[in-house]
């Protein structure tokens, strides 16, 4: 198996609240070249899980392997795109994309590579620009180019389009689909949008909360490009929605009980 998580658990130990279990017993196997979404309500630990794959969070229990090799620290074989802007404002677009290439390529090669990937996201025209001159959508495209330029085995995306407006989000969905087809990367995509997950993925892994765990795993075999109003798309969305409603209500109820506890 390409990427494998076995019995993975995460517990945060705070000084005041004591131990807090984010999730446990996560078993997940992901095949190469697949587009897999991790979907769940806020607080289910999906972003923490992704950060673990990136090597930014430690595993409390269990193990994680990429192509048979144990993973426990960040590495260039896993590229990540974050929801928050994470481009470096002191570098221009091209320098941002060459940032991770410093140790791998000569300067000329790195620049050529950066140009290739900026072309892929249709931003080669903006390579001399600085981040403050770019829109949110453009910044995320540069971030995608930056992550891909390292030629990672897996591309990790943590709600990358969550802060964008609807219109831009749809354009970037299409762009991401093209990139995925061209580069044949394995993509692990975290989102809380059912629509986004169904539209993009080969497989949707649904996480529940309190405690976080995997509650469902769907293979989405609808031909691409997928349209929002395709009956199969709507069918999947409904199915997942009813599943998640239970989880969301669980959280709400807990919060309400907390308010009314005396």
């Amino acid at each position: 198996m390409f990427l494998e998580l076995k019995d993975v658990a995460k517990t945060f130990t705070g000084e005041k609240q004591g131990a807090f279990e984010v999730f446990s017993d996560i078993d997940l196997s992901i095949e190469e070249n697949q587009f897999v979404s991790i979907l769940g309500p806020s607080g289910c630990g999906k972003s923490t899980l992704l950060a673990m794959v990136a090597g930014l969070e430690s595993l409390t229990e269990g193990e994680m392997k990429l192509e048979g090799e144990q993973v426990n620290s960040p590495g260039p074989d896993r590229g990540m795109v974050f929801q928050e802007p994470s481009l470096f404002p002191w570098l221009n677009v091209q320098e941002n994309v060459t940032f991770p290439l410093k140790h791998m390529y000569s300067k000329a090669e790195a620049q050529k590579r950066a140009n290739d990937f900026l072309k892929m996201v249709h931003l080669s025209r903006f390579k001399e620009h600085y981040t403050y001159e770019l829109s949110g959508g453009m910044q995320q495209r540069v971030a995608i180019a930056r992550a891909l330029a390292m030629d990672p085995k897996v591309l990790l995306m943590d709600e990358p389009f969550g802060a964008l407006d609807e219109q831009t989000r749809h354009i970037l969905h299409d762009e991401l689909m093209t990139i995925w087809r061209e580069t044949q990367k394995t993509i692990l995509f975290v989102t809380h949008s059912i629509q986004e997950a169904v539209k993009l993925s080969d497989r949707v892994v649904v996480m529940g909360t309190r405690p976080g765990k995997i509650i469902a795993d769907y293979s989405i075999d609808i031909p691409r490009p997928r349209h929002r109003d395709h009956p199969d798309v709507i069918q999947y969305e409904k199915q997942i929605m009813s599943l998640l409603e239970v989880e969301i209500n669980k959280v709400l109820k807990e919060e309400l009980n907390y308010e009314n506890r005396d």
Binding site: L56, P74, F88, W90, F99, H103
Partner: peptide, 27 residues
């Protein structure tokens, strides 16, 4: 912290993290 996390996924660590990210970010 976002800059540091991003840089770490791009294989920057230790002193490199300091002079390529922390110093320019502090300007």
């Amino acid at each position: 912290p976002q800059f540091l996390r991003a840089a770490r996924t791009m294989d920057a660590r230790g002193f490199e993290l300091f002079y390529r990210v922390e110093i320019p970010a502090s300007i």
